[in-house]
Design a protein around this nucleic acid. Structure first.
Length: 726
DNA sequence: AGCACGCCGACT
DNA sequence: GTCGGCGTGCTC
């Protein structure tokens, strides 16, 4: 495609709003734009950033045509990224403008980073050489440019010292180019020591990295060295001069990954996630666009960074549900990474110890190449895993920890080793009720119970922002002191632990912990250094941390995820339990994983305890195939929400009636969504189920356009390939 | 998605 | 008499 300026003087521009097509704008005389140029355009009463597109402009009323205000001094969004936008929009049934908007998340970065004011030794000497001045001169004498504060800091001198020297003419002012956010990674910084197995896998990935599009499923148990192996693919891509994206499910918690990367490449990758400071966000975006940043480690939104020559994507923990975005544009970052690789003709590596059923099937059917790492790395041994049958070894009255688990915790702590208790439920108790009248505390805006957070003294809704103070008396019958907490959350487990082990150092970790990401990283560091005996955590402790002294992992309620009717419940539980029990025994010491369950015969528990993942996968795959569920069939959800139940249900029924006739696609529902009321909106769902080869998108488009017009408070969301059924 | 316009309730 | 709620409609 030629990228010269449009001869017509009219260009299509994708603007960040849910229009189906780009809008047309006039290019004022003397302005040069190319497809991909980021421009400022008037839109209604305001001005927005948009991307010049390359679909033909449609005829538009000349009176409507408005001129582009400005072309930003910014590298254009490359052709392959533009095709990616079109593809994602078509697949997810989103407006292209809304997908383009994801590329424009750092408005301040569209203008170049300003040069910094700097100082450089001008050749003169200070009048009197004090100690501080000597330290400054020692650094400055090589003629390198410094920022005023940078030089002061490095020399351990105050700013007044620098200013004094400057006043004497020792320094001249110079402009310094903006500093890179990260140093360049060096592919030969450290030579990895790989086992035979790992070397074989690394060679395969390196070979793929040199070619065009391919998908490799790197499958190996925790501790088998997956990271070291895919680092070789990254090294190959860097050697080829291309950019690399590593997707991780929760970057805010993967400090350990950044350190390992640094050990291998001598520099950290740039980070991209929601917790970045606005300034850092701008700089990373800009330097990725300029090609100065070679490697990004990021959350799913990093897929929409303006890479100029992306040559490899690695999706770490590819099975993780966090890759699914479920607002605005509904997409799976793992699947879109594969699409991005296909469009860009470069390889994609999916890595996991517990791959998704979808990826396993894709590998079986030859679409992906499966690369297996079978052994655990070095001296690391798999933990000994056992189920605790809670019917036979129940906890003491009022408790949730079986005597068997408590005994092992005691032994572990007395050996000076660490124990981890895992429960995927925040707060103190998931339900509070009045013992006298039976009143249950429910969210006023959602169909869910309020969760007691005892530490904060509040009842909290986990589905919206609602919180209320925990009262002393029942609001229904007025009885004092008869409210009772039902079921455990991690706060309650922590309380039980403290009562059994008053002298142990106990830490509790959950995603809603005060102090945010920084605090979490510090706590995780402290745990790794051995500054806690017992750790109680939600699923964030399951993800990617290495606790060398952790020799016992206890799963408080292994059945928790199995209760809902989700077709992926068993798979998800298997993955989560594998991951959390994998936290133990990473340094070769004898370690133990204990799984509290009321259904020890459940296939998930059997698979975990026996270590026989293969037959579990076979069973799950067979079950999916039988039910024509993904990847053997296709699913889409249509979620209708409205201010009243009647409106939502009425609209959903209208959509159902509008479904076109199709032999290979059927519509189920509408049914009230499992959480029928969230944040004051009633929700109904339609489930669209098709054959593997059915044209789901065309069917959905036909259904939506034939359906009733959206009016009032009604909102319709489409989720192609839904991952969760809540 | 934003933003303005527009039409009905409680207040300086 | 105005300020302000959010329903409806439009943006090249």
């Amino acid at each position: 495609m030629s990228e010269d300026s449009s001869p017509t003087g009219i260009v299509p521009v994708l603007v960040p709003m849910p229009a189906e097509r780009p809008y047309s704008y006039a290019v004022p005389p003397g302005m040069r734009v190319v497809p991909g140029s980021i421009v400022r355009v008037p839109l209604g009463p305001r001005e927005v950033a948009g991307i010049v597109w390359d679909t033909p402009t449609d005829r538009v009323d000349a009176r409507k045509l408005r001129p582009i205000s400005e072309v930003f001094d910014c590298p254009p969004i490359e052709e392959k990224a533009r095709r990616f936008v079109d593809w994602v929009a078509a697949w997810t049934l989103s407006a292209p403008g809304m997908v383009a908007r994801m590329f424009l998340r750092a408005p301040a970065a569209f203008d170049p980073e300003p040069l910094l004011d700097g100082l450089r030794w001008a050749g003169g000497e200070p009048e009197r050489l004090t100690e501080a001045r000597a330290r400054v001169m020692e650094l400055a004498r090589d003629g390198m440019a410094w920022t005023r504060s940078g030089l002061a800091h490095a020399a351990g001198a105050s700013l007044t010292v620098i200013d004094g020297l400057k006043a004497q003419g020792v320094f001249e002012t110079v402009m310094i180019p903006p500093q890179p956010v990260v140093a360049a990674p060096d592919p030969s910084f450290a030579t990895p020591e790989l086992s035979g197995d790992q070397q074989l896998a690394a060679d395969t990935l390196r070979k793929r990295a040199a070619g065009g599009f391919s998908v490799s499923l790197l499958d190996g148990v925790t501790g088998s060295g997956k990271t070291e192996v895919y680092f070789e693919a990254i090294a190959a891509a860097i050697e080829a001069g291309r950019q690399v994206l590593v997707l991780v499910p929760e970057i805010a918690l993967t400090a350990a990954f950044l350190d390992r990367f640094h050990d291998r490449f001598g520099a950290k990758p740039a980070e991209w996630h929601s917790d970045l400071s606005p300034r850092m966000r701008e700089r990373v975006w800009r330097q990725v666009a300029e090609g100065r940043v070679r490697v990004v480690a990021g959350a799913r939104s990093a897929l929409f960074l303006p890479f100029r020559d992306l040559g490899l994507i690695v999706v770490d923990e590819e099975h993780d549900p966090a890759y699914k975005q479920e607002d605005r544009v509904f997409y799976s970052a793992r699947d879109m990474a594969v699409v991005r690789g296909h469009i860009g003709s470069f390889p994609v590596v999916l890595a996991s110890a517990t791959p998704s059923v979808e990826s396993r099937v894709n590998a079986q059917q030859g679409r992906y190449e499966r690369v297996v790492l079978s052994g655990r790395f070095a001296e690391a041994a798999l933990p000994d895993l056992r189920a605790i049958d809670m019917r036979r070894d129940p906890p003491a009255r009022g408790g949730f920890l079986s005597p068997l688990l408590l005994r092992e915790m005691e032994k572990t702590v007395s050996r000076g080793e660490q124990a981890l208790l895992f429960l995927n439920r925040r707060g103190y108790a998931p339900l509070t009720l009045c013992r006298v009248c039976g009143h249950r505390f429910q969210c006023p805006d959602c169909s869910s119970w309020l969760v007691e957070h005892r530490f904060r003294g509040q009842l909290v809704c986990h589905h919206c922002a609602h919180t209320e103070p925990r009262p002393e008396a029942c609001p229904e019958c007025g009885t004092l002191d008869h409210l009772v907490a039902c079921g455990p959350g991690i706060e309650r487990i922590a309380e039980e632990v403290v009562s059994h082990f008053p002298d142990a150092r106990t830490i509790m970790l959950s995603s809603d912990m005060m102090g945010g990401v920084k605090r979490l990283r510090l706590e995780l560091d402290a745990i790794a250094k051995g500054e806690a005996d017992i750790v109680i955590g939600t699923q964030l402790v399951a993800k990617g941390h290495n606790f060398p002294n952790m020799t016992l992992v206890g799963v408080v309620d292994a059945d928790l995820g199995l209760a809902n009717g989700d077709p992926r419940a068993a798979e998800r539980t298997f993955q989560l339990l594998s991951q959390v029990t994998g936290r133990a025994g990473r340094t070769g010491r004898k370690s133990l994983g204990l799984i509290q369950t009321y259904q020890p015969a459940h296939p998930v528990m059997r698979a975990i305890v026996s270590g026989d993942a293969e037959s579990f996968y076979e069973q799950e795959i067979a079950e999916r195939e039988r039910a024509h569920l993904p990847p053997f069939g296709r699913l889409a959800a249509i979620i209708v929400s409205a201010a009243t139940r009647a409106e939502a249900e009425g609209h959903a029924r209208g959509l159902r009636r509008a479904a076109p006739a199709a032999s290979d696609i059927s519509v189920l529902g509408p049914a009230e969504a499992p959480l029928s009321l969230i944040a004051g909106r009633y929700r109904f769902r339609l489930l669209v189920h098709g054959d593997k080869r059915s044209d789901m998108q065309s069917f959905l488009r036909a259904l939506l356009s034939a359906g009733p017009k959206q009016r009032g408070s009604v909102r319709v969301q489409v989720d192609v390939d839904p991952q969760s059924f809540l």
